[in-house]
Design a protein around this nucleic acid. Structure first.
Lengths: 158, 158
DNA sequence: TATTGTTATACTCTATAACTATA
DNA sequence: TATAGTTATAGAGTATAACAATA
């Protein structure tokens, strides 16, 4: 367990120094490995009929209407890639294109009710994988994850 | 923002109950989103000249010699996919094929010294992405991640 | 001239199906 | 007959480059 076990600091009380270059590197290694493996397993094992990129776009549009360029930037993909994703979602009837009254170049994209339903179903399905794994943890482990998820999201969006 | 924002428990002090079905689901959502986004960013932004699947295979072979079928099973990909990955690595001189003395159908795959060097370089390069992000966190956030990484690894391998 | 959306093209990773050689 | 490896083919997701319409 020594080489794969993360930098062992399970006590959230003491602000022990993780500022050491080596400790931070160990943490980086372990986090990277875990995240990439989880991502891959969800993609392969927990995939419904809504692929990750379509899922992300639906989730984004469930917050507010956006343009293709905005989505591309938010999802950090190229414009043509987002265009294909959007086209696929339109074809499935999950989103709707509407013209922008102020700028004829822009196309506003909005979720349809069908899309909202599909999003909800996909969320349930995809989260099930993670949910099952979380159930296999101890309460302490779940608490540790809950305390860390904000930081992890920050890493993801930083 | 309610669906994408992490389950707001930023205070690591109180051992609040995360055993509720809904809390656990929120945690699952946030963890899944963060892991998948991190994985994607590392793949696209932190990728050196060694793609993820080649990287994984080199890492596996750094432990021990394996056959293509064993690698395919370990990496949960099909035999043809692993065959291509292996072919690419052989072509780059990173791994070596040797015949099995007991079974002429099998081909044993082993890391070359060049491959070992490439693996080390890739590890350094890939971890750099995560390392930079960790440096952008507060000490408390890093502590939270350090405390959670064991659980996260358990999720990844469960 | 700059920007939004789009089309054309190509590359990587993945899979299933079919084939060869060996056990 | 079963198994390890391989080849053929196809599909999904990604990118860059080039083009059209509009601001």
């Amino acid at each position: 367990m020594s080489s794969t076990s993360p930098a062992a600091n399970t006590t959230p009380s003491g602000p022990t120094s993780h500022d050491d270059r080596s400790d931070l590197t160990d943490l980086a290694v372990d986090l990277r490995l875990a995240c990439m493996r989880i991502s891959r397993r969800i993609r392969t094992e927990g995939a419904g009929d809504l692929p990750p990129h379509q899922f992300s776009v639906l989730a984004k549009l469930s917050e507010a209407t956006r343009t293709s360029a905005e989505l591309a930037e938010a999802e950090k993909v190229s414009a043509p890639t987002m265009h294909k994703t959007v086209a696929g979602l339109v074809e499935r009837g999950y989103i709707r294109r509407t013209e922008d009254p102020h700028d004829a170049r822009c196309v506003n994209l909005a979720l349809t009710t069908t899309g909202a339903r599909a999003l909800a179903a996909a969320k349930r399905e995809r989260n099930e994988w993670m949910h099952i794994r979380l159930e296999g943890l101890t309460a302490a482990e779940r608490d540790a994850l809950a305390a860390a998820v904000t930081a992890l999201s920050k890493v993801a969006n930083q």
